[in-house]
């Protein structure tokens, strides 16, 4: 294996080394949060957290636990850097991102520390490509202060049932309105477009509804343009948890199963749309 010919001495200079037999396990989940170029990487011994933000109103996080990687070595408590996500994805798919079973790109991702580029060794069919991506000063991700203690309403749905409504959302509507209520309409998605309005109602006893815990009727509007990228995460996921807190902030958590059946999480936070009088 060309990737293992790396000498131990080489490895010692890196603060972070992460290897994957199948680079798709990383690239797929990163696609679910690709809506802006800049991604903040935050590695801890538990794994890798990648954050993308938009307009200080939307934040998407992808969590890839250390166990997903075949090797995950970190020499510091926290390693943080920022890279261009589009470039990273292009590199991860440098061999075309084949989906043929049995053909996969192996990845070894190394980082020497502040000021150094992120180095990717990619190997497929005996060919090795080395990519170096310049890193940037890591920004501090916004803290949305979304804590479970303040969660008013929560539903868990099988993603299957949300995929179609999200794919056919009326994009002429500026907002997506989410209503969650202990009484009817329980869980409702509404759009207000040029040609009229549309409502999608999910009864709480639907077999698509895995959990329904709503304490109080809450109706909040979120910018459609902000929520649209979350459709990518939805498409990959098998379950989604929709939560709102007392301030109307929205949390969407997606459970994503990768090619090897392992579980990863993608999370979106979104501010409610304030009505400006």
């Amino acid at each position: 294996m060309p990737l293992s010919t790396q000498s131990q001495a080489d490895d010692e200079q890196y603060v972070l080394v992460a290897s994957l037999d199948n680079a798709r396990n990383l690239s797929n989940i990163l696609k679910a949060i690709t809506f802006k170029d800049h991604a903040i990487f935050n590695a801890t011994p538990n794994g890798l957290k990648v954050t993308v933000e938009d307009s200080k109103c939307l934040q998407a996080n992808a969590f890839i636990q250390a166990e997903i990687f075949q090797e995950f070595t970190i020499k510091e408590d926290v390693v943080g850097f920022q890279v261009n996500l589009t470039v990273l994805l292009d590199c991860l798919n440098i061999f075309g991102g084949s989906t043929v079973p049995g053909v996969s790109t192996a990845l070894r991702m190394c980082y020497r520390g502040y000021g150094y580029p992120l180095t990717l060794f990619l190997e497929e069919g005996g060919v090795v490509t080395v990519c170096k991506i310049n890193t940037q000063e890591p920004e501090e991700p916004i803290d949305f202060e979304f804590c479970s203690a303040n969660v008013t309403n929560k539903v868990i749905l099988l993603s299957e049932s949300l995929k179609e409504p999200f794919s056919e959302l009326d994009m002429t509507s500026e907002v997506l309105q989410i209503t969650m209520s202990p009484s009817q309409p329980y869980f409702r998605l509404s759009t207000f477009g040029n040609s009229g309005n549309a409502h999608y109602d999910y009864p709480k006893d639907s077999e698509m509804m895995e959990l329904f815990r709503c304490n109080k009727t809450q109706t909040n509007r979120y910018k459609m343009s902000l929520l649209k990228p979350s459709t990518k995460a939805l498409a990959l996921s098998s379950k989604v948890s929709v939560r709102t807190d007392s301030r109307g902030f929205l949390s969407l958590q997606y459970l994503v199963r990768n090619d090897d059946g392992q579980i990863c999480f993608v999370e979106y936070y979104c501010c409610p749309d304030e009505e400006v009088e």
Partner: peptide, 20 residues
């Protein structure tokens, strides 16, 4: 002044479109 299309879908999902 609305024409309402209501689709009753599987799993109890109800899609209501109020069109002007």
């Amino acid at each position: 002044n609305r024409l309402t299309f209501t689709l009753h879908c599987k799993h109890g999902l109800l899609k209501t479109h109020n069109l002007s």
